[in-house]
Design a protein around this nucleic acid. Structure first.
Length: 271
DNA sequence: ATGGCGTTATTTTAACGA
């Protein structure tokens, strides 16, 4: 089966492009981030017309994650246990539920537990949102460890917009990002800590760098100048990674009329 | 140079993004 992840930057604005892409891409399961809508605003019909089931979590105009599948969509779970929230009004407090963003949704698709994840941006290293990001990732790590401890053979995919560039070559300019988020050591360690529970990046072996990205800013002609970031990942447990036969980043989808600023990331999994 | 662009909402500016 073919599994993909895509930060679409508003599903209502992008639904035509996403549907057109599904018509061509032969994707069985698509994890979406940044739908930017509430459940009742989500355009379900274009997906259902194409034979896909949809599960969506959206609480307001921010964030929003979804799973689209034509190979089953069972045991849907919105947010992971202990998922931290961010108090937007206070602007500083890191607090627990019930103030939780729509940043995580899971379902079992053809035997694979797929999590569509939208990791908090962090905004700036000195911003409280940055601590929220680190706490969010640490809690995800704890869950990942728990899932694999319960079943070392579990087939789990953690996919989405991680808002972290793990390697120096994952950003177009180290100097530009030197004092910004996405490349700081705490963020990279938080990402690595998830990997260390038993996950691997199953896309990178098929899309070697440098200069291979999944995101390009709308401004400053970043895309034509090939100045991007690699921040969208498909991480798989060993049992699932063993079935991966190929992967690609569909940078063609960053072109044309009204694109998302992210490209879809795709992985092929043997039956 | 906080510019450059895109999206959303109890919009006409502010918040957010990375």
């Amino acid at each position: 089966m073919r599994l993909a992840t895509w930060n679409v930057n508003s599903i209502r604005t992008r639904v035509g492009r996403v549907a057109d892409w599904l018509d061509r891409a032969e994707v069985d399961v698509l994890a979406i981030q940044e739908t930017k809508c509430r459940d009742e605003q989500f355009p379900f019909e274009p997906f259902e017309d194409r034979g896909y089931e949809v599960a969506h979590a959206g609480f307001n105009q921010w964030n929003g994650v979804a799973l689209v599948s034509r190979v089953g969509l069972d045991d849907v779970e919105i947010t992971f246990p202990g998922q931290p929230g961010f108090d937007r009004d206070a602007g500083e407090a890191l607090i627990a539920a019930p103030v939780v963003d729509a940043r995580a949704i899971a379902a079992t698709c053809n035997g694979v537990r797929v999590w569509s994840l939208y990791v908090p941006n962090g905004r700036a290293v000195a911003d409280p949102h940055y601590q929220y990001k680190l706490e969010w990732l640490a809690t995800l790590r704890d869950n990942a460890e728990r899932w694999l401890t319960a079943d070392p053979q579990a087939q789990i995919a953690l996919v989405g917009d991680w808002n972290i560039a793990p390697l120096d070559e994952d950003v177009w300019s180290l100097a530009y990002f030197a004092d910004k988020t996405h490349i700081s050591e705490p963020e990279r360690k938080a990402f690595q800590a998830v990997l260390d529970t038993g996950f691997t990046d199953v896309v990178r072996p098929h899309t070697p760098g440098p200069g291979v990205y999944t995101y390009w800013d709308y401004t400053q002609l970043r895309f034509p100048r090939r100045e991007g970031m690699r921040i969208d990942f498909i991480l798989a447990t060993a049992a699932l990674a063993a079935r991966v036969t190929g992967a690609h980043i569909d940078r063609e989808e960053r072109k044309g009329k009204a694109p998302s600023d992210h490209a879809p990331v795709v992985v092929d999994i043997a039956d």
